[in-house]
Design a protein around this nucleic acid. Sequence first.
RNA 1: GGAGGGAUGACAGAGCGGCCGAAUGUUCCGGUCUUGAAAACCGGCGUGGGUCUUCCCACCGUGGGUUCAAAUCCCACUCCCUCCGCCA
Length: 432
Amino acid sequence: MIDLAQLRREPEEVAAALARRGVPLDHVREVVEMDVEHRRLLQEAESLRARVKELSRQVGEARRTKDPAAEELQAEARRWSDEEGVARQRTDEVAAELRSRLLLLPNIPSPETPEGRDESENVEVRRWWPGMEEGRPAPDYTEAQRRPHWEIGQELSLLDLETGAKLAGSMFPLFRGDGARLVRALSAYALDSHRDAYEEIRPPSVALTETMMSTGHLPKSADDMYEIPRDDLWLIPTAEVPLTSLRRGEIVESADLPLRYTAATACFRREAGAAGRDTRGLLRVHEFDKVELFAYCHPDEWRTAFDDVLARAEGLLRGLGLAYRVLDLCAGDLGTSSARTVDLEVYSPGVDRWLEVSSVSWFRDFQARRANVRYRDESGVHFVHTVNGSALAWARIWAAIVETGRQADGTIEVPEVLRGYLGGQSVIAARG
RNA sequence: GGAGGGAUGACAGAGCGGCCGAAUGUUCCGGUCUUGAAAACCGGCGUGGGUCUUCCCACCGUGGGUUCAAAUCCCACUCCCUCCGCCA
């Protein structure tokens, strides 16, 4: 949620900033007008309320002193009370409407977020590949590496999409054998890599509607998530959801900032808007494991927090020896709640594509305002900033590892950093 | 799932339906005293909103209701604790 006070103070600036990401000027103007109307009604209702309270006090006083005017006063209080009820109801209606519109306004993009309408205008910041620092050229992939992971997965019995579909429908992958162990190893690898600064959390995989609101996933993206209406629960699309609500409603000491958490969870996405696209293999799935990095930070420290998450996500990819590129998302491609987002895309030779495996975002106080997470320092109480990033999304990483690591004999070389998690195993071969 | 108890400020803990946004204690902050510290004493100490005011309004788990007036009464729900049942 953007700051209503700021919108009131500088409506033109806010409208212009939101226009960068495609919000029509009318949307903003309507909210501003509704705010004026709301405050007018609020003042009216409150002065009536003050009057009722004053009269009620007098009624009490008159009763105590056995003043015969008590009846008369009470009758008058009743009239004002009725009127106040009507006024308050109208005020509440406008307030609710105002709030729901405000909730639908996306975050104000950071000034450094590039201009652009959609993903085609995202800006590539840099690329990395193994050996780059030593001056080696971008890799020239072998014939063996040019095989899509779904074929490799089937060959070596690592990935069984048919059985996954039998159990839960298409796009619910089932890993088996060393393929399943690889998924487990990846989470352990990432979690262990951040133990120095991030507290490990194992949150519930479902969240209440209220929790989904805090991150901005609701009300806007209801169609993209799995819902359990009977219990007012949703399957989480990312650990960002529970982590952002970890301190919901709390005021923390500024000395305790930043508060940093990491979590490995399954992530569920209906991919409603993407039906039919990228359906092969693990390119786009309804459920995947992911490790998330998250920070509540002081507004002045967001850059540090952001850079740290980004560096750690990149560090994991480098550790795995996977080529990747860094994209600065343009204003038009930003997620609702984000002010600035940088995506990491890994290159997967078998499918010859760049696959998004991480998204690092700064939300300014947009989510903190919704979740009501604040800090206290000498100057008072203020909203914290939130930063988060994937580190990393495993289904696509799995694909990239399997394709990149494939050797001429059809076996897969396991990245060194994972071997410890696989009992020292350095090669994945067909089970024999 | 069944029975009972509870939910009030950072914490503990009061609160006959009528100056209760809330006693009291602790913590914390400032001051006096002290060479310094402790103790003692004095003062301060919730969060929002309103044309941001020695003014007004809201907030005592959440949402409704009764009333001129609700932390206080009624209803529903949530969470926590105890006991019973069931179960990884």
